[in-house]
């Protein structure tokens, strides 16, 4: 019988994969996709909790997360496009303006 732990384990591993992508990939588009992975990992955990505690709230939360994630992707991609236009690059090493 598959229980809550199994779903949570899948969620945790997926989350870690997403973090690896954010921390190690240099292409900003892939980083953005890795963020989607992280959000999806959270969604999975939410739905699993909702299902196994017999509470609809978790699924409602996932609904909102998906909505906000869609908005986030749209804005993020718009920002990337604007950045790319100005700097002609999508690599993080080339974007070190924050260093004095």
């Amino acid at each position: 019988m598959i229980g809550l732990e199994d779903y949570l384990t899948v969620s945790a591993i997926l989350f870690s994969i997403g973090v690896v992508g954010v921390v190690m990939r240099r292409n900003l588009f892939i980083i953005l996709m890795s963020l989607e992975l992280i959000l999806n990992a959270a969604n999975l955990a939410m739905v699993a909790f909702s299902r196994f505690s017999n509470n609809i709230d978790g699924q409602m939360m996932v609904f909102f997360i998906i909505t906000v994630a869609a908005a986030e992707v749209a804005v993020g991609l718009a920002l990337l496009v604007a950045l790319y236009r100005r700097r002609q690059t999508a690599y993080t090493e080339d974007l070190t303006n924050m260093k004095l």
């Binding site: 954010v22 921390v23 980083i31 993080t92 090493e93 974007l95 070190t96 924050m98 260093k99």
Partner: peptide, 11 residues
């Protein structure tokens, strides 16, 4: 620690 690279900060 201040590399200016977002990923360092993410780490």
């Amino acid at each position: 620690a201040q590399t200016g690279n977002v990923q360092t900060y993410a780490l």
